[in-house]
Design a protein around this nucleic acid. Sequence first.
DNA 1: ATCGCTGCAAAAATTTTGCAGGTAA
DNA 2: TTACCTGCAAAATTTTTGCAGCGAT
Lengths: 138, 138
Amino acid sequence: MSVLTGRLRRQSLKITGPRAAILEILRASPRPLTNKQILEALPTGQCDLATVYRSMHLLEKMQMVKRCHFHDGASRFQLIAEGDDGHHHHLVCTRCSEVVEIEQCFPVELEKQIATENGYRSVTHKLEFFGVCPTCQE
Amino acid sequence: MSVLTGRLRRQSLKITGPRAAILEILRASPRPLTNKQILEALPTGQCDLATVYRSMHLLEKMQMVKRCHFHDGASRFQLIAEGDDGHHHHLVCTRCSEVVEIEQCFPVELEKQIATENGYRSVTHKLEFFGVCPTCQE
DNA sequence: ATCGCTGCAAAAATTTTGCAGGTAA
DNA sequence: TTACCTGCAAAATTTTTGCAGCGAT
């Protein structure tokens, strides 16, 4: 946690109650959360929804969180660990929305090929898997 | 085009002016469009925004369009060709939003492995690439 | 003649912004 | 002390819904 706050401090940004609380929620969550879910996970009245929005914009710009999209339109956020580039993917159940974190990633060579073929630079990708989880198959 | 309208008719859904116009816009577009872009592409007053929303929900449910997400939060829609499963990906410029359609896809075996490892069935994926296009590199 | 579809308008939901007071450093 | 932050409230956006009339089949 101190690692996270350190990154904020280095930018001369402040560690406030709401920010610490949000970071703690994100750290403890096994899956990405929407702004509303973050607010609801916070002790009642701990923080305003507007502050959650502002915090997520900030953290995203600092590359401390990653924004991802599942099947509904909502943006979800996941903490990016220090040192980690935050690049991993999810397998989401289309029925119950259970989320599993996935190890596999899109092959690097193939991505390079795509970049080269199209003359693009700094190419990255977003990848999410969807399916029916064991429980929902019954 | 008649192929598309046939699919609607089979469901005893009607081919109306707005629907035909929306389908034509989508058919002619080389890239996925947001609801607002669809409305703007329509001759003035041809159709109401609410109707665009309703149409896209309908077409999505019928699997005639695919919903995808680029870097902004907005949903974009792309027509799925008859016979085609509509599965292809995009390379989007993070500066000017230019979109290139990509041939490469996530390796099937790897996807199967992911499904098996986690006990999921009917696994598919969404994949989008982001980078800086040739023009924006200068 | 049906029943679905549409426009319009209103409602609901989501996200952003302004501002005055509070607070970390 | 000095910026930076926050809550609150209002505004701006985006998306959904109700309803009466129109229109495809």
